[in-house]
């Protein structure tokens, strides 16, 4: 498993598949370390629960109010503030997962994407749940924007490095 995830994968789903090596190195850190591995449903071979299961929802017809309600109920059960101190570490871990689930499912766009990938990979629902055209279009738009931003940044970076080269040279000549 990769050490840490690359920055730029900003989609919620990829962020959720973080896992941390710190766990093995310093067990004490476990108290505060949150591994979201259990939510790594997509493309992973482990049998962890998906977002719907986390929130005890039915994937087919859960509406936004049900999702909100489920999240609140689960938060009342698992938020570290309401759990006894010995449970804190575990509840933090669960709550971070609940949050990720809520964030994804309460956003119509993210939910559609999630559904597609979830059913596409774990079931044969892919044929029945085709990715909507608008989702595809938005994604495409995002990719274009991402590319533009990246090239802008790269340009800026080039200029930046030139400037700092000169600065570094100045520093050296001062010495």
């Amino acid at each position: 498993m990769a050490f840490l995830l690359s920055s730029s994968q900003t989609s919620v789903i990829s962020l959720l598949s973080l896992s941390f090596p710190i766990k093995q190195q310093r067990p004490r850190v476990l108290v505060n370390s949150v591994s979201c591995r259990a939510t790594k449903v997509i493309g992973s071979e482990n049998n962890s629960t998906n977002f719907y299961e986390l929130l005890s929802l039915s994937p087919n017809n859960a509406n936004i109010n049900e999702i909100k309600k489920a999240y609140r109920n689960k938060a009342l059960q698992y938020h570290p503030d309401v759990c006894p101190p010995p449970m804190k570490e575990e509840s933090t871990r669960i709550f971070v997962q609940l949050n990720a689930a809520y964030k994804t499912l309460s956003d119509p766009m993210l939910r559609k994407e999630y559904d597609c990938e979830l059913w596409g990979l774990t079931n044969n629902y892919a044929s029945t749940l085709k990715m909507d055209e608008d989702v595809a279009r938005t994604r495409w738009q995002e990719q274009i924007n991402g590319l533009k931003m990246r090239s802008n940044r790269r340009m800026a970076q080039k200029e930046g490095s030139r400037g700092s080269k000169i600065r570094a040279q100045n520093m050296r000549s001062k010495d």
Binding site: L4, L5, S7, L18, V34, C36, P80, F95, V96, K103
Partner: peptide
């Protein structure tokens, strides 16, 4: 939303 854990990748200059 807290608690939370986030990360980003960087590289050398």
């Amino acid at each position: 939303t807290m608690p939370t854990r986030k990360e980003l990748s960087f590289t050398t200059f």
